[in-house]
Design a protein around this nucleic acid. Structure first.
Length: 427
DNA sequence: TCTCCGATTAGAC
DNA sequence: CTAACGGTCTAATCGGAGA
């Protein structure tokens, strides 16, 4: 009897951020311009067009180091425009969701689709590509295999080899063909094998994915931990990592940012911290949770070794778990006052909400006086108004008022798809 | 010695 | 023009403190 093989597919958009920019600037595509998208503060390269990759521009390269090559090759650099990418992502995901009843959105530009039970895998994969391209202009590649790890790897093959025409399926191969393919892939190409593990694996003579697949899971587990064992089993076609259709509630929510310019005043830090709290608590409310722990941190510039460094953190247990921006902001400012020291140039700050649980279980403080000044309804109203009229329409008075710490974004594109006023700028 | 906890590490995008 | 190196998140693991 034939063993039941699952058909897990991983659909991933090519050069997603760059493509989002390119779609609204056909002139750039026509002129074959080299495009890169920069991280917050225009810090480093986080996405590259095919032309940029061909030029040898590396992922994560600091932008200032590329300025010379950039002007030589007429590179077009965009500041990141997350509103645009998130909107394009939503369109992409809803299209992809029509191809399978089981979808896990894994990141902004990729998702797993369980195609087990369908008999026309190839046709579905090509139809997916065609429809996405027609309706959004995005280009996706499809990888299929019996496990998520092999689906990811298949996607890697599909992207790398033009011969595959954007679709690669391990389940279409004989075992000899499969071994042949795996023998030509680097261990570092495997999902879950990063730089460190690659070095360790190479040291023991394991260089190809085939060698890793055929290594002994038990002894590999002893040397590398459980994750490695799962990876090896998945490479053998055993499903160890399940598809997660519902996004689990976050256990920790971080909001932090590097500043466009160094900040020295506590007032400006307080302003930034209030902004971060608003952001983090908003996410907390969006998943119907409350937090019991708040951490506040401020940092100097770690790349400036000539300047004094100071990176304090303070953890503040909240007496009553809450999702109330105003209450949390109050504690956060107290925390800031505790750790702040004059005479440093701060380059980054942030808040972390932890000890997160569902909002209906509220562990109240036995010894605190019963205060009923809950501003929960104010928060709900604020969230509603901000959802309707745009983020930041209503905010806490301190939040962003001084704007001494704002991010640099010199090359931001219009919000083509999310702001009526900016649609006309589409060429 | 065991367990719990926070801190650190490694990986992903 | 200066100067300039991201932000979030999870799971596993480590190491110290207390039971």
């Amino acid at each position: 009897m034939q063993k039941w093989r699952r058909n897990i597919s991983l659909v991933d958009a090519n050069n997603f951020y760059c493509r989002c920019q390119q779609i609204f600037r056909p002139d750039l595509e026509r002129d074959k311009k080299v495009i890169v998208v920069l991280s917050n503060n225009d810090g480093c390269v986080v996405a590259r067009s095919a032309e940029a990759k061909a030029l040898g521009i590396k992922m994560g390269e600091p932008w200032f180091k590329l300025k010379e090559i950039a002007s030589k090759h007429g590179i077009v650099a965009f500041s990141s425009n997350y509103a645009l990418y998130a909107d394009m992502s939503n369109r992409l995901m809803s299209i992809l969701g029509t191809f399978s009843p089981i979808q896990e959105v894994y990141s902004i530009d990729e998702c797993f689709l369980d195609l087990t039970g369908f008999t026309d895998i190839r046709e579905r994969a090509y139809a997916t590509r065609a429809l996405v391209s027609k309706w959004t202009g995005l280009v996706v590649c499809v990888g299929v295999g019996p496990s998520k790890t092999l689906a990811k790897l298949a996607n890697h093959v599909a992207k790398k080899h033009p011969k595959s025409k954007g679709v690669f399926n391990f389940n279409d191969l004989t075992s000899t063909q499969e071994s042949n393919v795996l023998g030509h892939l680097e261990v570092g190409d495997v999902w879950g094998i990063g730089r460190r593990q690659s070095v360790k694996l190479h040291a023991m003579g394991i260089e190809t994915v085939l060698q890793l697949r055929d290594a002994d899971p038990a002894s590999m587990r002893a040397k590398f931990g459980v994750v490695m064992e799962k990876t090896i089993r998945e490479l053998r076609g055993e499903e160890c990592i399940g598809i997660e259709e519902v996004v689990p509630a976050k256990q920790q929510i971080v909001s932090s940012r590097s500043f466009g310019n160094p900040v020295v005043l506590i007032e400006d830090l307080a302003d930034a911290i209030t902004h971060f709290v608003t952001n983090a608590a908003g996410k907390l409310r969006a998943q119907n949770s409350i937090a019991g722990l708040l951490q506040v941190f401020i940092m100097t510039d770690r790349f400036r070794e000539d300047r004094p460094q100071y990176n304090p953190t303070v953890a503040i247990p909240l007496p009553v778990a809450t999702a109330d921006s105003m209450k949390i902001a109050g504690y956060a400012i107290q925390g800031l006052q505790r750790i702040f020291k004059d005479g440093y140039q701060y380059k980054k700050a942030g808040v972390i909400l932890g000890d997160i649980g569902p909002e209906h279980i509220i562990q109240t403080d036995l010894f605190a006086a019963q205060e009923d000044g809950s501003s929960a309804s104010i928060m709900a109203t604020m969230d509603e108004i901000n959802a309707k009229y745009g983020r930041g329409t209503l905010k806490l008075s301190n939040d962003g008022a001084r704007n001494a710490w704002g991010m640099r974004a010199d090359n931001k594109s219009p919000h083509y798809t999310t702001n009526w006023d900016e649609i006309a700028t589409c060429k």
